[in-house]
């Protein structure tokens, strides 16, 4: 690993202004991805700006109408939070399936999201539940919908220096299910992951690792939302729409064809579980 300047800003404003002073500066949160890339020589930063001292909100807050998760909350905190497990169990499950406990004790939800891997495990539950992200450039804040945050592989709507500060999740009575398929049961990255969410009679279907971003499949949601009665035939038609919409690639974790089959089988199963229809 090459040497760099290490900066511990004490405010978000300070962090952003340091970041903007060069073209090759990086924010550090948990470091479980960044430091690997630095050790491998893929990234050679000039400055590392440690966000852990910058006064970003941490932890999980329960408010009357929303839940707020600080960008620096670790995946372990989310996995083990009795409150998240009760209200958004599918997010707790997704957090608990990312990497190993050693990784989850350091890796942050903000890092997982800003890294913008199409396979990010925390992305599909947050999109499905209608989360919003609070972004800060040190002066102003703006809110973007989780589903509008991702722009491509490793690309987000974040402007230069702007950072993810907090995640806001509406409290609701909806129910969701997360599913992840990986080559081995634990630790591995997802071959596919997905969340299906139902609130009253409205469904949301979000598929990960099958497109350049995690992808919400609105046409399939419409099919379910418009139906008078959800039966096996309708679920199978919905799963077909999902498969036609995704554009998976073939890589070391599985072929495009295999991914399509996984998605078709499991999205149908998840919808069935939420609709009370045996699939």
């Amino acid at each position: 690993m090459e040497n760099f300047e290490f900066i511990s800003p004490i405010t978000i404003k300070g962090a952003v202004s340091q970041y903007k002073k060069g073209a090759n500066n990086y924010y550090l949160a948990g470091g479980t991805d960044l430091i690997v890339l630095m050790r491998e020589g893929i990234l050679v930063p000039e400055k590392i700006i440690d966000l852990k001292t910058a006064g970003l909100p941490s932890g999980i807050k329960k408010l009357k109408t929303e839940i707020r998760i600080g960008a620096l909350a670790t995946l372990s905190e989310i996995e083990h939070s009795s409150f998240i497990r009760k209200e958004i169990p599918f997010l707790a499950e997704a957090a608990g399936k990312l990497g190993s406990p050693l990784t989850r004790n350091r890796a942050t939800i903000g890092g997982n999201l800003c890294n913008a891997s199409p396979a990010a495990d925390t992305a599909t539950p947050l999109i499905a539940v209608g989360a919003k992200f609070i972004l800060s450039d040190g002066k102003k804040e703006r809110r973007v919908k989780a589903e509008e945050f991702f722009k491509g592989v490793k690309q987000t709507v974040l402007k230069k220096g702007e950072l993810l500060k907090e995640i806001v999740i509406p409290r609701s009575a909806g129910k969701g299910i997360f599913y992840k398929k990986s080559r081995i049961k634990l630790v591995d990255l997802a071959t596919v992951n997905m969340t299906v969410y139902r609130e009253k009679k409205k469904y949301r279907i979000v598929i990960g690792a099958c497109h350049i971003t995690p992808l919400r499949i609105r046409a399939a949601e419409e099919k379910l939302n418009k139906a008078k009665k959800i039966d096996l035939a309708l679920i199978n038609e919905t799963a077909e729409i999902v498969v036609k919409t995704i554009k998976p690639i073939s890589d070391m974790r599985g072929s495009a064809e295999y991914r399509k089959q996984l998605v078709e089988t499991h999205v149908a199963r998840l919808i069935g579980e939420l609709a009370g229809v045996e699939v």
């Binding site: 470091g31 430091i35 050790r39 440690d50 050693l102 004790n105 350091r106």
Partner: peptide, 19 residues
Amino acid sequence: CAVIYNGSPASSCLILAVE
């Protein structure tokens, strides 16, 4: 490389000494 860091086990190969 696991050590107990701030009360939980973590990989010390991915922590900078300066942090």
